[in-house]
Amino acid sequence: MPDVTIDWYVALSIILFAIGALGVLLRRNAIIIFMSVEMMLNSANLLFVAFSRHLGDLNGQVLVFFVITVAAAEVAVGLALIVTIFRTKQSINIDEINLLKG
């Protein structure tokens, strides 16, 4: 049974990031796209924590705090934007959101 090394965590992070990117590219529901962005942020966080453990350095864990804070602010503003768009267009399908001034 081999030991778990940093490479395994990097690989898991790569796969999760790719799935998140695929979600952004494929899905047309703006809320699902936001969730995919959250997952990409999370895969980066996993990498931070894994390298923090690997290098014995606490700074990686501190940076995760800032990423989580920025993600929370981004979600609040993004969901408010989605609600506003839904009020005017009655849809959150991003293929139909094609006007700068609705």
Partner: peptide
Amino acid sequence: AIAAAMGML
């Protein structure tokens, strides 16, 4: 984790 991610997608 990967199965849940695929489920979300």
